[in-house]
Nucleic acid binder design. Structure first.
Length: 596
RNA sequence: GCCUCGGUAGCUCAGUUGGAUAGAGCAACUGCCUUCUAAGCAGUAGGUCAUGGGUUCGAAUCCCGUCCGGGGUACCA
């Protein structure tokens, strides 16, 4: 049982017996004792002063005495100002250590068929360009949130909605028709998504030039943007596509398949996966039907030009277009259809959309629209809104080619990891393949940790020059600590030292106790990360834990102590830390190397 | 204009439902490898928590104003 609960109950009793008052549990504020003071758990007594009508010191003294007498595990206490510091019996911490050591799934809850089902949508790429750093943040967050939800005992379905149709892909298609000269992944050796992306950039180049030319001739910017030949051609392709024009559809299929092959490689490198993939080309018609149903039922309205709109002004929002005047659908249309199909396919308790904060308004509107269309779950959808990744040069723009490409970045970081290993003279005993795998693991560990340690809601800065770090508060630092632990355990095994969960220790050092306390927090950290959809909480916990371990490792010899019981104790600590770190990092999708 | 999110050390970021002297890493400087992996450990230096008020035993945290920045704002996604 968690000791916090015991103490909380005891404090309630103390208040009752000492001051004849009732307080609710929320007023019992327990926190970890700051390192500068003696004690393990601290009670803040200020909230009780109005009941005791005594000074903070005396109140704390009285409650402390009560707790020491009534709670077995409270060994002693001290009072500093309004803070009551409790010293907990060391056996409590030792028991937790045994538990961590013995429980394969310490801190993790398993789902059963009755568990809440969470569907997490993430990635959701457009098929007109390769993935970049912004997508990496999305993918890592989505994957990690899903894993954390699983660890909290939820059933999870990871899903991806591929935005495979629309004006964006028509732009790449048109550019390829015009200037492609039959270029394919096969005949060019280029990765498919990169090839298609090249033509997206190409389109924009021509489009911009045409606009400039038209403006030169006296058109307004807006007129020029709507009359440039390229954009007219792309729109015509979109119209033909929706009309199922054979040639257009074939080109679309071909180019999308190039992209999918490319994406598969990137997803695999990133280590993310999906249980169910939806394609916008399948869902947009369902959405269209829903919109038309809404129109028939008077939920939406139509303008003279045939465009269909929703009036959300009564809900504090605005007018929203749902079908264009030419009958084609917009982004919102397909999102309605996708939502409907998903809820037909699964019994979803909670739908989570991992999408950037630039679309906050979109999801507010989507929730309202689904609600109006009669879907009871509409209002409950959760938009996991994360911040953008910025570069020192500013915002990334695919059209202008100012992006950090996902594939390139992973390759570059692998190179840095390789160079670093060579300089340090590490991994020389490993085979080429194993070393290569480890370089990759370290590179991905650095990248993933760098991104996931940051509060997801905030924008973050990525400087390609110096964000690639392997020392300090980084993924490789954590991996390194793990590898060190495994090294010690291997040596112990070589020496035929058996490790036992039976801990008989006379005293525990400060550093050891800190580690045990830190380990005991893991279950609540997992839960907090789940409640808040925050991988960053896991990341920061793991960092604190291994930092603590490295201090312990520095100050205490594990295999060099004479006392067998102490050696066993320290081996159990090392094993437990290794397990929890691996478990925590696994929730972030970061692998731990046995050696590095 | 309106809506919304943010501003913590030179840089990148933590900071639990308001709690003790605001913490890490990087960069700079100084120590520690014949001993379990130095991708490590220890130390020095670095702060008006954007700013002005307010709430209270107590505010980086809650409320109001101001300044600065990001995002959104009816036929892009």
């Amino acid at each position: 049982m968690r000791i916090e609960n015991n103490i909380q109950d005891a404090v309630l009793q103390a208040i009752k017996s000492l001051y004849e008052s009732e307080v609710n549990a929320a007023q019992v504020q327990l926190q970890n004792t700051r390192k500068d003071f003696e004690g393990d758990i601290t009670l803040v007594v200020f909230p009780f002063l109005r009941l005791s009508k005594k000074s903070p010191e005396i109140t704390a003294e009285e409650i402390g005495t009560f707790l020491q007498e009534n709670v077995d595990l409270v060994e002693s206490f001290n009072v500093i100002k309004g803070f009551l510091n409790l010293v907990i019996d060391k056996n409590y911490w030792l028991n937790i250590l045994s538990e961590v050591y013995s429980d394969e799934n310490f801190g993790l809850k398993a789902a059963d068929e009755n568990s809440e089902l969470l569907m997490v949508e993430y990635s959701s790429p457009n098929t007109n360009k390769p993935l970049h750093l912004g997508h990496i943040r999305n993918n890592l967050l989505g994957f990690s949130i899903a894993e954390i939800a699983k660890a909290n005992g939820k059933q999870v379905v990871k899903t991806n909605i591929v935005n495979d149709r629309g004006i964006h892909i028509c732009k790449s298609m048109y550019a390829w028709q015009q200037w492609g000269n039959g270029k394919t992944p096969e005949n060019s050796g280029m990765k498919g998504d990169h090839l298609v992306g090249e033509f997206y950039v190409e389109f924009d180049k021509h489009y911009k030039a045409e606009i400039a030319e038209l403006v030169e001739k006296g058109l307004s910017k807006e007129e020029a943007e709507n009359q440039a030949p390229s954009i007219l051609a792309a729109r015509e392709l979109l119209r033909k596509w929706e009309a199922k024009d054979h040639e257009t559809v074939e080109l679309w299929k071909t180019m999308n398949n190039w992209v999918y092959e490319g994406f598969d490689v990137t997803y695999k490198s990133l280590g993310v996966d999906f249980d169910k993939i939806y394609y916008e080309s399948d869902t947009y018609l369902v959405g269209k039907e829903e919109v038309l149903r809404g129109l028939r039922e008077g939920i939406f309205y139509q303008k003279d030009d045939n465009s269909v709109w929703a009036d959300l002004s009564a809900d504090g929002l605005d007018q929203k277009i749902l079908l264009r005047s030419d009958g084609t659908s917009v982004y919102m249309t397909q999102d309605i259809g996708t939502a409907k199909m998903r809820f037909n396919d699964y019994t979803i308790d909670k739908m989570v959309y991992v999408v950037g904060n630039e679309q906050n308004y979109h999801f507010q509107v989507l929730a309202q629209l689904l609600d109006k269309l009669g879907f009871s779950w509409g209002k409950d959808l959760y938009h996991f809104s994360y911040g953008m990744v910025e570069l020192p040069s500013g915002k990334m723009k695919s059209r202008e080619g100012t992006v950090v490409d996902a594939d390139d970045l992973m390759d570059q970081m692998t190179e840095v990891a390789r160079k670093m290993s060579e300089e340090l003279g590490k991994l020389e005993t490993l085979s080429g393949d194993e070393a290569e795998k480890t370089f990759r693991m370290i590179a991905l560990g650095a990248l993933k940790y760098f991104i996931l340690k940051v509060d997801p809601r905030k924008n973050m800065m990525f400087n390609p020059e110096d964000s690639i770090d392997f020392n300090g508060n980084t993924g490789p630092f954590i991996q390194y600590t793990y590898a060190r632990i495994q090294s010690v355990l291997r040596k112990a095994a070589d020496k035929q030292i058996a490790i036992s969960s039976n801990l008989k220790i006379d005293s525990i050092s400060e550093k050891e106790k800190e580690l045990l306390k830190r380990l005991s927090l893991f279950p609540s950290v997992v839960q907090e990360a789940g409640d808040n959809y925050s991988p960053a909480i896991i990341a920061n916990y793991c960092y604190e834990l291994v930092k603590e371990f490295n201090q312990f490792y520095h100050d205490h010899s594990i295999l060099g102590v004479d006392d067998a019981a102490v050696m066993n104790f320290r081996l159990v600590i090392a094993t437990a830390v290794g397990k929890v770190v691996k478990s925590g990092m696994n929730l972030l999708g970061i692998e731990m190397p046995e050696r590095m």
